[in-house]
Amino acid sequence: MNTVASTTMQIIALCRKEWRVAIDTPLAYVIGIAFFIASGFFFGNTLFLVNEADMRGWFGVLPLVLIFFVPAMSMRLLADEHKSGSFELLATLPVSTLTIVWGKFLALFTQLAALIALTLLYPWTLSGLGSIDMGQIWASYIALLLLAGSYAAVCLYASALSRYEVVSYVFGFILLLALFLLLQVATLFPPVVQTVLLTLSPAAHYQSLLRGVMDTGDVMYLLAMTGAFITLCWFELERRRWN
């Protein structure tokens, strides 16, 4: 119990530290503003051009938008620790590597969640313009958070792969893009391969969740992918010590 409590405290401390850095440095604000311009563009597009008080299109395009933004938010997290040497300081505190990874992940995920929470402004605006199904909106937001979690884990792993932020960004971007494109290229393959590719694609599970049915399989897939990349990130950090 005592170790659980102290590990939780350490995860919270790590998370607080990352938030502190994010609030004190301009990068987070730049990313936040850019995200609002991009997501606002797609929101306004449906609203004004298609003349529909509907957010399904907006939710549909977000996986692609996030591919650009999540790596930007995560690139520093571990790459910078390795470059500045502070990883040695962190790793010689009485904390396990897995706790470090969870702390970093939680920081990234809560930052993403905060960014996503601010977009609640859009459905609020829509609710004044016409009748919308709030139940479906909430379900879509839950799906979006699950997707964001898996993206965060992928990009955290990418950040562990290099000492350089830019390289980490590119790694994260390529990984996410490759996972996203699985959905697009699946149709080119015979049905058997197609099923496999669609099973592996987080975007496919996300879109299935957007249809309004909370399928346990889709939820589990996104959670499993998050867990898998967190584990990979943990292994990567441990591996560095042995070489």
Partner: peptide, 8 residues
């Protein structure tokens, strides 16, 4: 403070 919190 961060270092201290990590030490509990």
């Amino acid at each position: 403070q961060f270092i201290g919190r990590m030490h509990g």
